[in-house]
Every structure is written in C-alpha cells, then in structure tokens.
Amino acid sequence: MNCLLSCALLRIDGEAHVMAVLRDITQIKKMQEVIIQTEKMVSLGGIAAGIAHEINNPLGIVLQAAQNMAQRTRPDFAKNVAVAQAMGLDMELLARYMRERKLDVFLADIQDAALRASAIIRHMLEFSRRSESKRKLCDLPGVLHRALTLAQSDYDLKKSYDFKKIDVSLHMDDELPPINCTETEIEQVAINLLRNAAQAMATADPPVEAPRIDIDITALPGGVRIVIADNGPGMPPEVLHRAFEPFFTTKAPGVGTGLGLSVSYFIVTKGHGGRMEVESAPGRGTRFIIELPADAPATVPQETSA
C-alpha cells in the first residue's frame, strides 16, 4: 500500500497540536502506471504501421517466390514444357515426383503461412487503430474470428499460457439480427475474455485436464447473446464479486493491470447499451455472458477505452 503523510503544527487555544493527514494513494499510483502503459501503447500503434510495412515486403517475396515455383513446375504450362523438352526432362514425370514427394504441398504451405502472417499483421493494425473506431453495422462472426486469431497469437512465456493446448469451439446461429457496434471494441472485449480464460487454465493447480473454451453466439428476441465459457478452475465467490472492479486482479504483478474486465464491462454496458454478466464457481469453470441490443443507438458519444 502506498500512503502520503503530511503533518502540520497547529496551535489551538495556545496549546500545540499536531495535525496529521494520512492518505491512501495506492489507486493514484496504479493510475499513473496505467497512464504510462497507455502512452506506450499509443506510441506502439504508430510504430506498428511501420513494422507492418517492413514485414509485408519480405512476405510479398515469400509468397511470390512460392507462386513462381508452383507456376514453373506445372506440366500444363507451355513455357515449362518447352524448356524441359530442350533439356530432355519429362514435365509430367516431374509433376508426379513433386506430388509423390509432397513438394506441391510444401509450396502450398509456404503460401498459406505467408498469407496467415499478413492477416495477423493486418488485424493487429486494425485493432491498434482505435482512433478510427466508429459505430457501424457489426460483423460479429468476423469480430469473434479476429479476436480468436489475435488471442491465439498472443503467446507469451511470461504470461505462461499457450493457446495451442486449448480446444476452442465456435458456434453461432445462422440467422443473427443486425447489431450496431464498434468492432474493435467488441473485439477487445472478446480478446480480454479469451486471454483471461487461457491464463486461468494455464496457471490452474491442479492443471486442467482438457482445457477448452466454448464460444456461442445466439440470437435473442431483441439482440444477440455472446457466451464465452471455459472449463478452467473457476472463481471463488470473493473473487467473482470483484471481477469487474477496476484494478482488482488475481494475476501476478506485471501480468494483469486489473483493468481488462472493468474496461470490457464499460464497453458493453455504457458503450453499447448491453449487459455483461459472469457465472463461476471453483472447479466449475467460468461463463461470461454478453448481450448486445439490436437497436443500440448509433449516436452514443465515443468514449476512449484504454
């Protein structure tokens, strides 16, 4: 706990008194840390665009090289056949060899990997470009997919979790009513919940046997319900009651700010006129339920969400 102590000598009716004021500044200290962290994130957003450019160029080379290799080994391509014939090579045989030794699959894998890496970079950029966030007709399945991709790539040794070990299922109703939302904000909420679930399951003692996260998106009469449930360790009542409280965290120092859930709650309820609830019990996993109304007002002033 951080405290601020100030004293003053005070004379009352000729008698000396000491007036001491002791103030708990723990929250202020934490706020300062958050502000510093936020500023770092803002400058990182600017750097991210430059990094994306630098990474996209080599990815372009990787993709084009793989595409050229695929094209130049095709047996039905007149130029390939002409060159091969001139040197006594049977292109059909080469194509068969490539299939036999799975070289065609390797080339496809290279192309897929390059496209995947570029998609991650694009999502990261879209996510960091918060200033442009605007309320619009929301592609909820897309938002959830992107959140999942980002959360899955957020593997961090310090945070000691690995999404690859988690069995994730995503289920959504075929017909969902149109929802107005700020996509990056709902994405942020989903990332927070996914990350929390992954961290909770990774640090559980005893370890979770078969960790899984179930995401369900269902249509409601006047909106959409998103449920993100895990089979992790769950929360005891005293933690559950404070789950949305700002700066409340059960994570190790440096892992959580204690703001993820409170910001998420703020985004859903104040930002989107929705509801957010949590159900959990020790050993029973955790379920977050988010309901977004279909007729969310499109003119709600945009608040900054850390």
Partner: peptide, 12 residues
Amino acid sequence: PADAPANRRNPR
C-alpha cells in the same frame, strides 16, 4: 491483401 486465412481456420 490476398485473403484473410482466419476464415479458413475456423475452429471446428
């Protein structure tokens, strides 16, 4: 860019 492979990697 060419495509977002995330669409092709739907978890089940």
